[in-house]
Design a protein around this nucleic acid. Sequence first.
DNA 1: TTGCCGAATGTCAGTGGCTGACATAATCTT
DNA 2: AAGATTATGTCAGCCACTGACATTCGGCAA
Lengths: 252, 252
Amino acid sequence: MGSPHPAPANAPANAPANAPVNAPATVSARTPSAAADPGCRVLGLRERKKQRTRDALVDAAHTLFLNRGYGDTTIDEIAATVDVSQRTFFRYFANKEEVALAVMADAEDFFIARLRERPAEENPLQAMRAAITEAWRTLGDGRRTGAGSVTAALELFELIETTPTLLAAHLRRATEQEGVVARVLADREGLDPATDLRPRLLAAVFGAVVRISHLSWSTHTDGNDTGPDGMIELIERHFDQLGPALAGSWRS
Amino acid sequence: MGSPHPAPANAPANAPANAPVNAPATVSARTPSAAADPGCRVLGLRERKKQRTRDALVDAAHTLFLNRGYGDTTIDEIAATVDVSQRTFFRYFANKEEVALAVMADAEDFFIARLRERPAEENPLQAMRAAITEAWRTLGDGRRTGAGSVTAALELFELIETTPTLLAAHLRRATEQEGVVARVLADREGLDPATDLRPRLLAAVFGAVVRISHLSWSTHTDGNDTGPDGMIELIERHFDQLGPALAGSWRS
DNA sequence: TTGCCGAATGTCAGTGGCTGACATAATCTT
DNA sequence: AAGATTATGTCAGCCACTGACATTCGGCAA
């Protein structure tokens, strides 16, 4: 499992042999400074502390959700694990769902960033396929924890898919991201997203394909590769089925 | 701030000149009996009463949500309007979102029913386009209330789209329906939905197209036709853009 | 009609998510 | 080292939602 850090000043030593209080979450950050500030390499103590408690909250919530289940975990429990007040929890996360979807949200932002970097000569669909493949590949080997994080992702998917409230929140987030994607695509091609239907349409279709892929991945753990490569292959397969699915009758 | 009416026994007379307390909601029903029972033409008093309170609750909630806003309307207010206890409300609807999405849910069921009726010789995409067109057309003229209900639908879309909680719940419902649609398609074509990716994929893409269409419809009230015909045309246009969007570069 | 059964409703108490207001303690600035 | 910011804790409160139990009402038959 996680790395057994000696748990610095702030964070309480909970989680017997489970996850360290200060686990470096996926892409972490999620603060405007982390992405926007240009030269500030060493953040102040204050910022670092905030970052730590945030990560600790995400981590504690994650383990609790997977053990006790989402519905049977209270905010008080999460807060108590990290040794902060309930009120503080709500200063970091707007609601219970947000802490559960934090990692997922970071991943989505990561994808958007990759999409923005794609060369202009690729067409929209190519750019998106390339961006998501790249994102998954990076997530696969850029992992400090080595393995484990991928299985963690799988568990998270399953948790989301089986928890109505979480699924709803996740879908909402996803469609929001579709809006962002649509705008990026429109910029790339230099057209007005208000007039042209294609950017939003393609973004939505892309979102649908990815979602179905995730679903396939999480439902059948058996047989196929469950690593990032397996996911990439699954997405590719679904994309390749897009044409046939839209074509005429399926009867062979 | 409540209603200054003397509040008669069962059904209170709210909605000054808006909607009658016992509005026959779209397809209404939502009880297994209404769709399953074959010969029971006249329902017992008990059933009719339940139906009435249910409709009244939906109606009261609808008007309150549109006036005060979703977040600023309490369940107690809704229940008080119909003159039932809060507990009774929760015996009809699992949660606050459900009462807001009740009409929408009925419409979705209606679409599924139409899809099931499509002749077998149509290919999947044709069947779905035909089914949704038919559904909207029926909804358009099969209306006792005459006009008004279409504008009501528009207001409802807007409410959903602008209320995070509602949007989340709606999206969850919609994806659930995609699962149903996928199964229907798989049955039509006689293939295994667990193996073949196409049914689920096409259902998801179809859902995406419809969602984008709804969004377009609700956002630009101006210019185009806002009636059911306008919606049908919008959906058609989006479908026609599907191919071009998936094709290569968009630069003209 | 009467009387019984089951279903619908009301009442009550309690849990948990979430928020505003204010006081306190920690960091940052000069 | 003092003052300005900012994070946190505490407290009180609203509201969505639930289980348990009492009551009333509609359906049905003797």
